[in-house]
Design a protein around this nucleic acid. Structure first.
Lengths: 233, 233
DNA sequence: GAGTGGTCTAGACCACTGT
DNA sequence: CAGTGGTCTAGACCACTCC
């Protein structure tokens, strides 16, 4: 007996995780089928299914029709990263947020931006640079391109007060996007804008968002020295 | 009419996402309750629940008992990051993986490691340094501390052939852990070990894993210049 | 107190996939 | 082809939380 009554899918999940963790079920082992576990736990198969699905999503089980359910051999797999909105991140730590637009214009993007946003060779786009501050210290710099075909309204807006990101979030919903995380060495321009030494290693995040097949915006965020992204597994 | 028959929870999810995306339901709006949607779509409430739960997990909806379901005002929230096992990552790109242990010993860890692993002040730990190669080029460096109280077997092992990580994954299952992602400027030692110029900006990942309240291991991985982590949202 | 989402059940059928 | 997980249904009760 496991000693604890099983009444809901969380209990089943806890019991399953305990068996994996205590190596009753070892990595690579096939575990009993849903109907057997349901009988053992005295609950419906749907409840077992709910629990096993959750554990599989967390990466500890591999499930396949017909082949059954096996304990994952390499459980270090998925981490959920919450991508913060800069203003929220700063305000949640009780610091004062401020924002400064450095430049904004419509111009032809360089080739690597055209490729990233799937723009035609002669297509113009909205370009902007801005800085985000926490308690008047530079927190992050942002360089952004916006697709003016997908988001025509952007040409009439004033981003000196409201950040482009906040306007876009509220007014140009996206269907999907991709994110890259990388280390960046500050060049002279970036170093000057952010008030750090040239060559400083900075944490960077590139994000491109899409409305179906149409790119909306691509942004390169570079954070202050010492910034780190945290997550639990 | 939406024109497409709704037969399963994925269809419901697609329809819900489409309504959010096309702004039939705007950010902050309360959407119809589950029973109403079930009636509209001609399916069971459980099916609607399954779909809405999935959309909420993706961050596009906020759900509360009694208060109902609302469209999230800030959908940019969660990204699932798959933390790769280095050997797999290299082999999947059809490059030859190799590994070199540089040092291994039992010694007293520095204070910040003691704090990170919740070790007593006089407690010793297993320390190792290693390099990972892809096609004989340096791919990443690793510096690791292992809690010899939680994992006593580690003292009898030879990590010259098998990497510590692979042994730990198979033999010391963890219940939870935390990960930090950051940018690192190569100091002289790191630069020499990795064959890069001093001061190069490198992508780093720190991970500590736990077996309930006992730390298992903490590792600092530093990747080659140009390395980036990718994810979709 | 009442309304909404959260979950359970029992049974059924479907879909993928290994043999 | 057969076994396993994937999903649907209809109804029920529970738990949280706003008023």
């Amino acid at each position: 007996m496991s000693g604890i009554a099983i009444n809901n899918w969380q209990d089943v999940q806890a019991e399953v995780l305990d068996r994996i963790h205590s190596r009753v079920w070892k990595p690579g082992d096939q575990i009993p089928k849903e109907t057997e576990l349901a009988a053992e736990f005295g609950c419906a198969r749907a409840t077992v299914n709910r629990a096993l699905r959750a554990v599989a999503e967390a990466g500890f089980l591999d499930r396949k029709r017909k082949a059954g359910t096996r304990v994952a051999t390499h459980p270090i797999r998925k981490a959920t990263l919450s991508i913060p909105i800069i203003r929220h991140e700063i305000e949640e730590s009780n610091r004062a947020y401020s924002y400064a637009l450095e430049a904004a214009s419509i111009k032809k993007p360089p080739a690597h931006i055209q490729a990233k946003m799937d723009l035609a060779a002669d297509q113009m786009a909205h370009h902007s640079k801005a800085l985000h501050f926490a308690n008047n210290q530079t927190f992050a710099s942002e360089e952004r391109w916006i697709n003016i075909h997908t988001v025509p309204d952007v040409q009439e807006l004033d981003f000196t007060k409201q950040s482009a990101n906040e306007w876009l979030v509220a007014n140009a919903p996206f269907t999907h996007g991709n994110i890259s995380l990388l280390a960046i060495m500050a060049d002279l321009d970036l170093a000057n804008r952010m008030g750090v030494a040239e060559g400083t290693a900075l944490f960077g995040l590139n994000r491109t968002t899409w409305d179906s097949d149409n790119s909306i915006t691509t942004v390169k965020l570079v954070f202050h020295p010492g910034y780190a992204l945290h997550t639990k597994i």
